[in-house]
Design a protein around this nucleic acid. Structure first.
Lengths: 250, 250
DNA sequence: TGAATTCAGGATGTATACATAAATAGCCTT
DNA sequence: AAGGCTATTTATGTATACATCCTGAATTCA
């Protein structure tokens, strides 16, 4: 096999899923394009059974769309779709923050979140921010959002947030890298980090409404980044799937 | 085949999915119970390939849970899980209502919603409400919520709401029938219908915040119904899957 | 010349056989 | 007698062969 040793133990289904996802997100498979099982078999070098399972999983991940007569095609997204997905994530994260506040997250459970906050502070402090720092920020930011989500202590909600965030352009860190090339970069980072600070404070003080509101607003920072990136056409190569968005239906 | 003619044309996968879902919701398959593929094959009389697809679909529908070592088990829900799912649906429907209001749903597109509202009015008017009227209410209420969701004109949001509502105990009409046996039945119905009226009014007047708030509150009526039904142990046979809820983990 | 029909190619849907990994029960050892 | 190891059984993971349906192109008829 040409795969690395670390990938030898995972199932063919997962392998196919990863390979196909990469090809979709990298733009090698274009939106609207039908993707036949045999084609997927050739791409992934596994047989039809695991390929089919991978396709089904990618469908409910939201990257593929079922064709009524059978089979799948690569899903096409409009700019509006992406903005709505971001708003959707913000709403769900807002609910998570409110749950965390209302249900009284213990000081102990808030500890990791605060540590994460401090780490982010370190990264944001430098000006200008290096590319490496941006990359580290993406990782740490994802961790912050994951910790916050778990603080809701609500399995159904966590599940939904994970589902929405699975789409890379709706995920909390989806456009942070795209923003790195913008002149407003550092400013946006500082504002985002202030949101983080506020939500932790609100949860600590049991201010549910405030915690919810700030997370909603926080997601709109991502929406702003997306719009800026699209207008400036900067760093779109970081998310090739967005290179050519579908125009609205009508 | 022993199936009815109307079911002869649908795929084996869907048939298996329906059969298994019924057995889960009717309580014949108990929460926590492992459900092997061969067992599912015996139940559904189809081969392993479509059975496996059905199991995967039921997993991301939320009724099954994947076992790390492979295979699936029937998911167990706590009362808290269900209440959270209801709150989650309310939040999403609130967002849908706000979208509809902010984006200016046309008078033309509001028409079906208003008709539905009038039909519901007719049903609610009688006192006491007959069981048939309750049943009709369930259908019409589901239609109202579906129309409202679509009014958001946001495919990603519609998708998420459909996903959440797929769990019968989180769906808009999940506990309406359970409520029919309660003395407070008619009163609750009237209040719910008033919520419906308000959300339509709010959307029409472009009052986004109001539309959102009332849909959130509206979902808490379902939460109230659930609690009442559980306390009174009334009509739990209508949702046998709830007959014995899992106790919280700790 | 246009449209409809038929035929061919290829796609998905399904069943099953085989490989491999996990779980369990029994036996052996300590 | 208790614990661990091994063997057996049963589960899932995978590949492939077969059946059926859809799709598209070519040909024929009006």
């Amino acid at each position: 096999m040409s795969e690395r040793d670390s990938e030898r133990s995972i199932s063919q289904t997962v392998r196919a899923q990863l390979a196909l996802r990469d090809m979709i997100l990298s733009g090698q498979l274009r939106p609207g394009e039908r993707i036949s099982e045999l084609q997927a078999v050739e791409i992934t070098s596994v047989s039809r059974t695991p390929v089919r399972l991978a396709l089904v999983r990618l469908e409910d991940e939201g990257l593929l769309q079922a064709i009524p007569s059978g089979g799948f095609m690569v899903k096409a997204f409009t700019e509006r779709d992406i903005l709505d997905s971001i708003e959707l994530r913000g709403t769900l994260e807002g609910l998570a923050a409110r749950f965390a506040a209302e249900r009284g997250a213990s000081a102990r459970s808030l500890e990791p979140l605060k540590e994460c906050l401090a780490d982010l502070d370190q990264l944001v402090r430098q000006d200008p921010v290096s590319v490496e720092a941006f990359s580290a920020y993406v990782t740490m930011n994802a961790r912050f959002h994951a910790l916050l989500t778990e603080l809701s202590a609500s399995p159904p909600l966590i599940r939904q947030i994970d589902r929405v965030s699975a789409l890379p352009f709706a995920s909390p860190s989806g456009f942070v890298m795209a923003q790195s090339a913008l002149p407003e970069a550092h400013q946006i980072l500082l504002i985002g980090q202030d949101h983080h600070r506020i939500v932790v404070d609100a949860i600590e003080n049991r201010e549910g409404a405030r915690a919810e509101a700030i997370m909603r607003e926080h997601s709109r920072l991502a929406a702003r980044n997306l719009r800026l990136a699209l207008r400036n056409r900067t760093h779109l190569d970081l998310l090739p799937a967005l290179a050519r968005l579908q125009s609205p239906a009508e």
